[in-house]
């Protein structure tokens, strides 16, 4: 019984080492990109992910690491960076965007994503200021 438990512990430790080795190998092969968006890419991402969202305009965060996108109907979506990809969220109609010193604070009210800051410099486009809290 004790031998079996020891074997299983060793197997788990070896598996952990293998995970670290594979992740390191992936990193060494160059799979650690942090891509940047342009306006067309941000609009395409929001339109592709959110059913019914027809992107009209976008404003990019510094270095293209995120964006806010407005749809034809005036609704707003955030494109947020996650590893080598993006996570897209619809924002509430009013009060979800607040200018702060570092950029714009987005209130998302989700577990693990209560709020986040996109480094979008001012001046902001008129369509975006209409969404400010």
């Amino acid at each position: 019984m004790r031998l079996a438990a020891t074997c299983q512990t060793v197997q788990i430790l070896l598996s952990l080492l293998a995970i670290l080795a594979l992740a390191a190998f992936a990193w060494a092969l160059g799979f650690h990109a942090s891509p940047r968006l342009d306006e067309a890419g941000a609009m395409a991402e929001a339109s592709a992910v959110l059913p019914g969202f027809r992107a009209q305009s976008a404003v990019l965060a510094e270095n293209g690491r995120g964006a806010l996108v407005q749809a034809e109907d005036g609704s707003l979506a955030a494109v947020l960076p996650l590893a080598d990809g993006w996570v897209v969220r619809r924002l509430p109609a009013r009060g979800a965007v607040q200018p702060v010193e570092a950029g714009l604070r987005l209130r998302l009210d989700e577990p693990m994503l209560r709020s986040t800051i996109l480094r979008i410099p001012s001046p902001h486009p008129d369509w975006l200021e209409g969404h400010f809290a």
């Binding site: 594979l22 992936a26 092969l29 799979f31 650690h32 990109a33 080598d84």
Partner: peptide, 21 residues
């Protein structure tokens, strides 16, 4: 992983792969 790198088809990310494993 080697094929993805060579062919530029498919995607890997070390963080995502680490979470999966």
């Amino acid at each position: 992983m080697l094929l993805v790198r060579k062919r530029r088809t498919g995607r890997y990310d070390w963080r995502d792969a680490g979470v999966s494993l």
